[in-house]
Structure formats: C-alpha cells, structure tokens
Design a binder for these strands. Sequence first.
DNA 1: TTGTAGGCGTTATCAC
DNA 2: GTGATAACGCCTACAA
Lengths: 332, 332
Amino acid sequence: MTEDIQRRPPTSVDVARAAGVSQATVSYVLNDNPNARVSEKTRERVREAAERLGYVPHASARALRTGHSGLVLLPLPMARTGRLAQEWLDALGDALNDAGYTLVYYGERKLKGIAAARDWAALRPVSIIVDSERLTKASVELLKSSGTRAVFGIGSEPSPLVPSMVLDHRQVGELAARHLVERGCRRLGAIVPREAGIDVMGANRWRGVCRVAPDAARLDLAFSEDEARELVAGGDLPDGVFAYNDEYAMLLISALHDAGLRVPDDVAVVGADDLPIASLMRPRLTSVHFDPTANPVELVTLLDEIVRGEREAADGTVVDLFAPRLVVRDSA
Amino acid sequence: MTEDIQRRPPTSVDVARAAGVSQATVSYVLNDNPNARVSEKTRERVREAAERLGYVPHASARALRTGHSGLVLLPLPMARTGRLAQEWLDALGDALNDAGYTLVYYGERKLKGIAAARDWAALRPVSIIVDSERLTKASVELLKSSGTRAVFGIGSEPSPLVPSMVLDHRQVGELAARHLVERGCRRLGAIVPREAGIDVMGANRWRGVCRVAPDAARLDLAFSEDEARELVAGGDLPDGVFAYNDEYAMLLISALHDAGLRVPDDVAVVGADDLPIASLMRPRLTSVHFDPTANPVELVTLLDEIVRGEREAADGTVVDLFAPRLVVRDSA
DNA sequence: TTGTAGGCGTTATCAC
DNA sequence: GTGATAACGCCTACAA
C-alpha cells in the first residue's frame, strides 16, 4: 500500500521530514543563511538527508520567491557566430558564472520583433545580450518593464536604444590598410563579400580601409571561384588588398596564382580572423587577429553595476570589443 | 501620492484589474483554454489590457504550477562544437520548438560530476542532452529523480547508462577508405591527431579505415608544419591517406607539395567535414561530408515519446547521427 | 459566462 | 535555536 514510492522530485519538505526538522530550517542550512542560528548537529542531519534523497532546489520556485533568476540571456543562433566569437562567448559565460550569473544561450530563430521579446521576457532574465537589429523601441520597453535590468545590444553599430557592445569592423579594415601601406603598397582595395549577413561587416571593413586610403577600391565579390577569376582577369587590381577575411583571402590568392600573379610581390593580401588553417598558406597569410579571451571581465563588471543599480547606463554607452585586442599577425 | 508608478512587472492580477475581470478569466483568455467559455467582448478587453500593460507571463511561475518547463538542456561549451555540429544543433532547436520544447544551450564549464548534474537539475529540464563522458551513474540517477524524463548522451561511443546519440566516427574512416580503395590505392594510412579532445575521434576514424584495410598505417600527427614535414620526410608513406579532417588534409598536402610529391598521383588524400574553404585547394580536396539538416526530426520524435511516457527507452538505445547522412564529396 | 480558492516549492518574517 | 506562516505568479477544478 504505502509501497507507492515517491515519484515526484523530492522537495525541501521531504528533506525536512527525513531530517526531523521544519522546512524553514532546511532552507536556512542549505543556503548558509547567517541570520538563523542552527546547531551544527542539526546542520549535519539536514545535509545528510538532502544528500540521501537527492534533493535539488527548484530554480523556478526560487526565482519566483526571490524575484530574480540570475539568468543572462543570449538569443543567438549558434551557427551564425564564428570560432573566435564562440571562444569569446565561452569566456563571457565563465566570467558571468564567477559573478553569480548564468549565461544561457537561447537559440530560437522563428519569432520576430515584439513576439521574440515576449518570449525572452517570459524567462525574466536579469540581463539580455542580443543583436542590436532585433531590438525595437517597443521590445526594449517590454523587456525593461518585465524586469530585465540590463539590455545590451551587440553588433557592428552602436544601438541608439540601449548600451551596446560594438564590434567596429572599420577598425579591422583600418589596421589591415595601415599594414599594407607600411609594406609599401600604393593603391589599396578591399573585398566586400556579397553574401547576405556578412555584407554589412564587409562594407564596414572597407570603410575602415578608406580611412587610411580614401580612394581605396571596393571589390564586391561572392564566394565563388568563377567570380574571383573574373575579378582577377578584369585587371587593374590594386597592389594591396584587404580580402575581408581569411577564407576570401585564400579564394583571392588561389585566383591570383591561377592567373600567374605573385603574392605578395604583385599583389599583397591581408586576411582576417586568423583561422588556424591560414598558417598553412604558401606564402603564409597575413591576418588581422582578435584575441577573444581578455575582454569579458570588463563587460561583466559593467553588466553587474547596471543590474545592481549602481550605474545608470546611458543608452549610448558603448563597449568596444575590438580596440584593445586587434593585432596584425604578420607573415614574416 | 498615488503617482508612485508600478515598478514591478505587471502580473495577471494587474491585467485582471485593468480589464475589470477576475484573474482566472485572464488566464483562460490568454491561454485559449477551451474548457472555459468566455464572451468575445471580455476576451477583447482582456487582450487589450494585457497589451497595454505589456504583460508577459512569468515562465517560472508557470513551470512551478504546471510541473513542466519544456526545457531541453544542452550543456556544451560553444567553442567545442564544429560548424556542422552547430548547424545541426540549430536545426534541432527549430525542430524542438515545433514540438513545443525549448532548447537551451547552457555553457557552464567549471562544475564536474555530480555537482554539474545538480546544477542542471535545478532548472528541472524535461530532457537533457549531454556529453556521454560527463554522465555517471549517480548523476543520471539524480537527474531522473529530480524529474528529467529523457536523459540523452552524445558522443562517439554509445553510453551504457542512457540512450545516446552516437557520432560513430569509424563510419567516416570506413567511407574514406572505401573511396581510396576504389580510386586504386593499395596501401592505406590514416592520420590520428595528437591534440587532446580530438585524439579519440581520430583513433575511431582510423579504426574505421582498418575495417576496410586491416593493415592501414596509423599516422600520429600534431597540427604543426614541422611534424608534417617530418612525417613526409620519413618516407614510406601509403599511397592513400585519410587525413582525419580537411584542416589536417591541407596540412599534409602542403607538406607533400613542399617535398615535391604530387597529390593525388603519388599520394591520394581524403579529408572530412567539408569546410567551404576546402573547395579552394589545388587540386581540389576530396572530403567526407555530413549533411546536418535532416536528422533532428527523428530524434525529436524519440525524445517526445520518451517524455510523454509512450516509450520506455532502453538504456542502450542508440540514434546513429552519421549513418544516413554521410557522403564522399569527390574532387572530380 | 465568470469568480473563488488552493497549491506548486521557495524564502523570509515573525513568534515561540 | 527552531518552527509556523505568508507571499511570489500562475493554473484549474469547482462553485455561483
């Protein structure tokens, strides 16, 4: 009869019963609440019972009661982020962990606009880091009014709505261009990929090149060997090309080789992103590199201060993710 | 005095007050509960009030009340998963969404063993998909007893503890080897990377090669040009090499070129993973390719059945993620 | 057709 | 030192 074993997860009440104490005492002990004085003997009994029953506190119940979940939501599809970005996100997760938060990567892709914001807000995250483009005035308002303390945008442009983490791709182009100029190039060009999704970054990197060489050629290119061949065959190439990233750099170099041109003697090429694979090119590929490990702490501090209300982040606040960590890895 | 505006997120009670109905009615309307007949006029009033107040239901409260969160937890660090795996995970997330679940990528990396399991269990996920190696008997028990209905392992070996999704890397090696044999190679070899983390996969791919060519050479190699050069200089290379993946394939081909050997005439090379970049190699790289888009539905169905209790998944159940979707993309 | 009330698992404020 | 008890926001019989 009473053989009907407990199939539902054990609760703190179960632990209390098993330890012969009240449920409040269980909470005190397990949370090391300093306000309550509990004898060491009782503590031991409670801990033992919890262990034995396999008790795990219910995060939802706790969030409901305390009013905060410690969740930092990151609604990005996984595949869209490159390798360096992922390493950076992992580092961010660790840093947030250390500060008592939990980074949760929420990959939903279907919902748009305000519906997406509702979906995120349902989780009552304490903070959210999201593509600046997915944020509207209405969705930010919804998030804030539903308890999200720190809404961050992330993207290549600062958001007018919220503080944002900016990957200013012009800096990448600028650095590459300066390198090419130092190497003696006279006419610069930059490849701008035609692929949707990265075309904007490409245009920004090109603009960065223009800051150094105002008359730099804009070389629009799809990731195809045919187009690359055409580009090269068209002649009149600059003698220094920033190829957007390492993959396009290899595409271009490959087409240059096929056309009998020499790299870097005829055309110098600089890539970006520093794929491990890039070190295999002959001649070696020069690449703009981003060190992903160092930044998160700074961002976590900012986030933490905003969440605690110690700081009222102005909407225009910008955390530059690139500036401190961009270097050219030379082929030399 | 009453100017003190509501700073806490609006609740369904607030909506009820604003709409002049009871809180139950709000719940009925917003959830389209068919058991309750509510007049269209009331529905409209409720919806309008919810909209106006920016009401968003509280996921934790709902989970607490209903007893399930619909969360499927995926505790993997982002950077460890390759591009194809990510696309697959995104597709999985979409498929789960369609089935009413929510895939949540939970990147914590510090906790080990049972402590990690406690961390996961606190979220009361309905299912969890996790590296088979991170699961112990105790942690599986803890998860199950805390309400996780479907615990899945994922890895290159089936887990004895739980149903698992297996990426049987021997199949990759086997396919590559068969291709090399068909191309006329007589002596086969397989590169096994020395890097921790992928060495196991490498060994499995090599074993797959051995299933086709029992005397296949095992070529241990770190990802460095020096080692690759040594390997080639050592001579006595097989005339068909499965290079583990495309990056190693490029490393090897590069070293072969430097040594004056011809690919594929002297040594045929097959890579794997089909990086977009691999299509740029001269000569083109042959690669074992995995189509990531097709599998999730099947897995979601299985998960759903287990969750609903319609199916009692035996611990040994294995979902082979590779078999149906592995092809050789030829250089021809 | 709508409202009342109880409880999900916690934490925190009180009495004892 | 410890134990009742009242919320937190939501869902859902059941009552009106």
